[in-house]
Structure formats: C-alpha cells, structure tokens
Design a protein around this nucleic acid. Structure first.
Lengths: 137, 137
DNA sequence: CGGTATCCAAAAGGATACTG
DNA sequence: CAGTATCCTTTTGGATACCG
C-alpha cells in the first residue's frame, strides 16, 4: 500500500490520527481526543475488563474473579473510567447486601468489535513478531 | 449484534482476545501475547511515532522535531521497542556526522492500517463519548 | 548526530483498613 | 457486597551530562 511514499504527496498534514484528516477535518482537538482515548484504553486492565463484559453483564465481585490479579481499588477506577466514557453501564439494585451489575453499552459493544480486528491482527502476526524479538536478543 | 447474550452460549471460554478462540486456538500463550503487545503499543509515544513514520522515513532528530515534548531518551527506548517487535527498521549510514534513518517495516505498515480503523471509530464516536464525560462531571 | 548512563519526578498500580 | 480512603511500591517518563 506504499504508505511510505505519501510524505511527498501530502507533506503538509499530520500523521496516524491525521491520515484520517486527508478525508475529514484536521482539527487539532480531534488528534488530541484520539490520543487521549487510546491512552485510557491502554490502561492495564481496560481491555481485559471490556473483554469480560463482552460475554455478558457481571457483578463487581464476579469481575474480580475473572480478572485474576486485579486489585479491589484498580477495578473500581477502571470501571469508573469506562463508565465515564460511556463504554460500560453500572446498575445498582437497592438491596442489602448491595448488588451492582456492570454491562457493556452499545458504544462499548461497538468498540469491542473494532478491537477484535486488532486482536485478530495481533494473532495473525504473533509468530512474525516473536521471531523478530528472538533475533534481537 | 447481541454480543451480550453469548455468555450463556459459550460460557466456558475466555473473552476479547478469546472471543477469537471461538474460531481458533484458545491457548493461554496467545492471550498473554496480545495483552503484552497492546501494552507496548499503549506506551505514551508508540502510536505517535508509528504515525509519523507512516508518512515516510525520518532521522532521529527529525522525529524529535515532529514529536514535540518527547525526550531524547524516551524516543530512543520507544524506537528500540518498535524495532524489537519488527514494526520499525533502523538504518545507520557510516558517515561523520552519523546519520540514522527510521522507517516503517511492512509489518509496521500493516499495523498502522489496522490502527487507522480504530482511529476512525474513535472519531466517529467522539461527540458521543465527550457527551458522556460531560454528563458525569 | 545519535546515542547511552545516571539521576530524579510523576504516575500507575497494589495492599489494606474502614464504611453504608 | 461494593465501594472509598490511605499508604506504599513499581513503573514510566523526563532532564541532563557524557561518549563515539
């Protein structure tokens, strides 16, 4: 796809995020937004959490169980971030003891679909990448 | 896409990474690999660096200039990681003063293509996500 | 110029105790 | 049970000086 020859052709715009600007609006705010979002989703447990919720709603404690190694506190902050972005919904049932269910929102489902294509890519290239790492060590 | 109903159907397998296991091999090593790769690419400057190189090869100093705010040392470690994974190539020309060019490898180009679809998703949902954030703070 | 080595600051993550 | 608050450890990133 000769992506490496495009600098000469479109030398005045910015990359990745901005390759998209060839099509739409090159506003700096969009670049910042995408970088920020990627940062949030790159947090240690975000993808794993979304992944678990992709199989159906789960309670706080259930999530702890399927995410071995996560701490009480980190699960809370991870869920709060995802909730703030609208990827996950939180439903508290007014009972004693309390019961809270977390689930993917439609936005969250939409994201997971895209993420799956990245996962597929990663798996397709696993041998290639591991071979590279081995050669250099 | 009713992804939220699948837990009952395939209750014994694992998520995201593993939704893919419905199709191929559910080996734990693959899950670990993808998580690890995502972690590397989630590092602060990895995506930005790939992005810049997507427009063509660049020298070390040129990269510093197009990545405002990155430190000398961090650019080095970022490039080393990308090089180790085979996403970026490093070519040193034996001159004085030294000249070193970094470029995307075919693997790196392939990755950037996939990443662009994630970027597009992010931009498509920017308003939606920002609206969610605003509501909750 | 393109690094590596050293040192330091900031942020992320984790353990744990306490609460409604 | 599902948190919040507090404290501590680890990791990451940045500033800087020096080297081939």
């Amino acid at each position: 796809m000769a992506i490496s020859e495009t600098r000469k052709l479109v030398s005045m715009d910015k990359p990745l995020v901005s390759a998209i600007s060839d099509i739409c609006d090159p506003e700096e705010s969009k670049v910042a937004f995408v970088r920020d979002l990627f940062g949030r989703l790159g947090e240690k447990w975000s993808m794993r959490t979304l992944d678990e919720l992709a199989h159906g709603p789960l309670r706080f404690t259930a999530l702890m169980n399927v995410l071995p190694g996560i701490s009480h506190r980190i699960l809370t902050v991870t869920l709060r971030t995802l909730e703030t972005d609208g990827m996950v919904s939180r439903t508290a049932y007014p009972e004693t003891p309390p019961r809270v269910e977390y689930a993917l929102t439609p936005l969250g489902e939409s994201f997971v679909c895209r993420a799956l294509s990245m996962v597929a890519w990663a798996q397709d290239h696993q041998r290639e990448i591991e071979a590279n790492r081995a050669n250099r060590r």
